[in-house]
Structure formats: structure tokens, C-alpha cells
Amino acid sequence: MALSGYYPNLDDNKDLWAVQRTKIDKATKNDVVFIGASRVLFDIQLNEWEKETGKKPIQLASVGSTPLPIFNDIVENTEFAGTVVVGVTPPLFFSTTFLMAVPWKREQFRVDHYFKRTYAQRLNHALSIPLQQNLVLMSTSEEEWTSNIDLKTLLKNIKIGNRQPKGMPPFYQFDDITLERNTEMTQRTVNDTAFANTIKKVWRFYGSTSPPPEKDATMSFFLKDAKAFTERGGNLILLRCPSSGGARMGENMGFPRVDFWNDLVKQANVKAYHFEDYEQFKNLECPELSHLSVKDARYFTTELAKIMIADGAITNQKIN
């Protein structure tokens, strides 16, 4: 499909993530950390959260990954005892504990990079920021979007014949990210149905190729860390962000709420928020079935923070 309207933007890469991870080492009891997959990344807007709670959260969610490795890192490698909000996207959260599986490897790669990154890599990242922010041609990305305009991607997009098995459909970038990793869905995804459909095709591809869930293994891994975290005074919260249409139907069929979400909440015995339980969120529609538009994400964040404060799950730092 035709692509137009290129503009400079940041790459949500391991270095950008590692800078946020650094903040946990100095974080206090009052800090809030978001972990999870892309839904938490898109749906939680950091400025709106700060407006409601008085404290800007640390965003460590990563696209297409399970939060288990980063939660395990927080529990085992830090003394953080503030609030951790875990985004539960069922197909990813309950996917695997196998170290080489993609949802695990993607997250573990970032955790490992945080510990192993060299001073040269830190400097490279710092020097690359002004270039990324100002030059459209700085277009490589860790996600290897089809819409990148670096030479490797341009060549990769050339297809002749049908020699190899049909793989993943083209996956165009549909978000923008800031230095603090605040992520917004692009307006094009909201306004251009044909473009949004290209993203939906990718979700369908993942839905049809994902292996069956490993509920017992993932739950047991998570619950062990959850116990350790809450025992040292940490505040753990589970969050199920909205999905719509075919994605939601698929999740309801493959990961029935009663068997997965309800069981997780019961066993973890912590505060939990499912979008279906709140009147405010029932009508939210995801333009590409899985993430909220920036307008809805701002609304979702604001309302969610209010609900959590009212529920006593988090405290309002503006008052304290």
C-alpha cells in the first residue's frame, strides 16, 4: 500500500527502554511502574496519569512480549517496593515461560541489555536521539517495521514470485513514542480504515499461528514473584486493557475470563481492574482491534487513575 507522510520519530528500542529501567533503581514507595505488552504502552498516557495522581509513572511495557521477565527482574534485582501495574494481555501473559519463545525472548533481551549495555552503547544512544528527532532517514527500528525506509527494509520489501512459504503480512508502524516512552497511536490509524486493516491482518496472523497457552507454568512463575513482591511491601495491581471486535472474540474463546483472568486475580489476591467491569470503558473501540486511539487512551488513563484512587489501590500524591 502507498505510504506517505514520513516524519522524524524515535525508535522504541532496547536503549530507550533501558533508560526508563534505570529509574527503578532510584524509585521510591510512591512510584508507579507499568509493565505489560503494547496495550499498556498505548493505553496509559503518562501526562494524564501524572495529572490525576501527581506522579509521572515509569513505563516499561514492551510490545509483543510477556511481562514475566521484567517483573522477575524487578523482584529479584531491585528493592523497589512501590506500585507495579501489570498489564494482562491474555495471549501474551499466558503464552510461555520458555526462554527461547518470542514473547519471552523479546522482553528478556531488554532486561539483559540493561545489565550488559556498554558505555559506548549508552553514548551511541544519547548521540542518536537528536538525529532520530530531526532526521526522517534515521529509520531503522528494533521492530523492523515494513514502513522503515532504511536500505535493508527497502530490499526486504522486494518480493519476486512465491518461492518461500507465506509469512507475516506487512506490519506498518502505527505509533509514536517519546523519550519517556509515552506512546500514542498515529492519527492515520484512527482515520484511515485501509491502513488500520493492515494492522488487523497482523493480529489475525498472530492469532492463527500462536501456540496454545501455558497457563499453569506462567501462573506459577508469576505468582511466585507476586508473593515475594507483596511480602516485601510492594503494591501489585493487575490491569486488563480494552480490545474490540475479532481480537476480543478470539481472546474470549481462547482465554475465557473465568478460567484465566478470574483465576489469576483469585490466586494473586491483589487489586485487579478489567475494562469490562466499568461502565466508562464499555464503549471504547480500538481502531485496529487491540489498542486505543490517543483520545480514548487519555480518557481511559484519567478514568482508570480515578477508579484506582477511589478504590485505594494507589494514593494521590497531589494530596499527600
Binding site: L155, I158, K159, I160, G161, R163, Q164, P165
Partner: peptide, 9 residues
Amino acid sequence: KILGTFDII
């Protein structure tokens, strides 16, 4: 066959 024709060329 895991490579595309373009890769081989």
C-alpha cells in the same frame, strides 16, 4: 525453501 527468489538473486 526458506529464501525468497529476490534473496537468491
